[in-house]
Design a protein around this nucleic acid. Structure first.
Lengths: 331, 331
DNA sequence: TTGAAAGCGCTAACAG
DNA sequence: CTGTTAGCGCTTTCAA
């Protein structure tokens, strides 16, 4: 257990050759004599050799690793994004290193520093706001970076996602067209996308001459949060007849709590979410939501990033993959 | 953008000293002359220097990184475990590298190889079954490994978790004591823990002279899966009056579908889950479940692992952190 | 207070 | 077909 890791030299010693021959065997067995091949193969199998990437990272400056930063791993929005990323990185031979930062730019900075210190070849970020230091490090590292989910803000280098403001605006308009009079926006610990959605909502309600009604919690989104917010809303604003939530988690929390309290959805209150998680289709009523192209965001992002790692320079700075309004049964 | 990463030498060149002086400044500014300090500090700030861990990994064989393998990042069971892990690794200065393997031992092997090739100092695995190759690599690497979640099987080195078989057995007994006559076990794509739970269920029902009734899907657990399974069960076995599910996701999927179909829980069918996710407390009825110490599992695992990385040898091979039956309202 | 040399494990480039 | 040499970026050790 205490033994140190098997190195190429250890293998070479056992078979009585130099590590160079063993190295060749590893890259291309054709290059070594058949008799040597067998010996090396045996030694390799017995000794549990694991290649060490550090020397290569050092001499070539390439790690074949991509750093992926998510605000939180319990935010199910990113499950599909990750699958999309891996659908590209896996066949391309890149390893991804996932980290999360609890929606904090300071923690994001720390994570990025850490990922860069491992010499990742590229970064996928889920945020469009960063600390000064983060920006400096990214510039100094020279690695390509893609920011995902939103396409509004000018990105560091490239953004892949959809227009959150427009999505919320269209959803609000749809709700208005259904006759809801007092629609409220439910926000949570605000990343920029949440605020963009709120803005879309505000634009839509103001356009029809109404005052926005905002509920905003400093907590991270969760179903429990949605449930708590519902209680508050009822206590403070009994005449609200519809709620557009920053995401499906919050919306489902509200919806389940309504059912628990005997409040009818959508008759007493309409509820809509954002992202189109499968879970929203299991509730009754099925949740109205904005279906976002999460898998595709991951996929396109990884393709773009790998292309740029390999020298592509003609990439678009904004790639908007659109969205789709789904009415479900909750509005 | 195409510029290569800033190195210590680059900084040294700018300030007209050797990289050694800059290196000293980074570790302990006291060691360099105040006049030099200022120059170095300025250069550092302007050039966005990121320390490169590769040389240290190479020369010291230590990366201050811990590899964490989860079967799937969309399995919410592991959210809390991760939080527990990070509550220890963060203050201790260890970076964690998360990877997932879709419940496949082959993929797990690939991921472990990759993590080890980055020279992680320790590994946290979520599975107790591994390929031959995996075991050989782990032995060859000499890194400490802890397997989490279950404490039944003999671990590679150390296991931290609870007794899945006993948990399911006790839950089944509780259900039997409430008078349910035809309890079925709902399993999914079976990791060993799922099978252990099934076994606990079987032991309990056989003890009272009944035949086990098993529904097992080859799919990964999800709420949607629970929903589908409910439909099948009703088609095939209308007289089942209770279901013990392999986890909360499946149980909630079943529960929501029951409500959608007008089946009363627990009057028509009782449903119980496993793990105690907060979501289960938002449904009505609140889900009966086994509350498992997930945060603590992560915490204890990380403590143990770091101790062993630093040479501790007196660790227990099995650490059982227990569980708690919660009746909720669904049984 | 600063510098110079050596070495971590591997591979590219160049012999032989 | 196989060996030798050098070097990636940093820190440890020794010297000045």
């Amino acid at each position: 257990m205490k033994s140190k890791r098997t190195s190429l030299q250890d293998i070479a010693d056992v078979v009585g050759m130099t590590k160079m021959t063993v190295s060749r065997y590893l890259k291309n067995p054709q290059l070594v004599a058949p008799s040597s091949r067998i010996q090396i193969e045996n030694a390799l199998n017995n000794m549990g050799y694991i290649p060490n990437r550090a020397p290569n990272i050092l001499s070539k400056g390439k790690s074949y690793a991509i750093g992926v930063l998510f605000p939180s791993i319990s935010n199910h929005v990113f499950d599909e994004v990750l699958r999309g990323i891996e659908s590209v990185t896996e066949p391309a031979g890149y390893q991804i290193m996932i980290a999360h930062y609890a929606y904090s730019p300071q923690l994001e900075e720390k994570r990025i520093a850490s990922l860069l210190s491992f010499h990742v070849d590229g970064l996928i970020l889920s945020e469009s706001v960063h600390t000064q230091n983060t920006l400096r490090m990214i510039a100094g590292s020279g690695v390509p970076v893609t920011e995902i989910m939103d396409t509004r803000k000018p990105p560091i280098q490239q953004a892949v996602g959809f227009d959150n403001e427009e999505a919320a605006k269209q959803m609000t308009e749809r709700m208005l067209s259904k006759g809801y009079q007092n629609i409220t926006y439910i926000g949570a610990k605000g990343d920029v996308r949440d605020l963009a959605r709120q803005q879309g909502y505000e634009i839509a309600v103001k356009k029809v001459g109404r005052e926005p009604i905002i509920f905003r919690s400093p907590e991270i989104t969760s179903m429990r949060l949605g449930s708590e917010i519902l209680h508050n809303i009822l206590a403070i604003r009994p005449k609200i007849d519809a709620a557009i939530c920053t995401n499906d988690d919050v919306a489902i929390g509200m919806l389940l709590s309504c059912k628990k309290k005997g409040i009818r959805v959508p008759d007493d209150i309409a509820i809509t979410g954002m992202h189109g998680h499968e879970m929203g289709q299991l509730t009754s009523p099925a949740l109205a939501t904005v279906i976002t192209p999460r898998f595709k965001i991951g996929q396109v992002t990884a393709q773009q990033l790998i292309a740029r790692i390999n020298g592509a320079t003609n990439s678009e700075t904004h790639i908007d993959l659109g969205f789709e309004i789904y009415e479900g049964e909750s509005m």
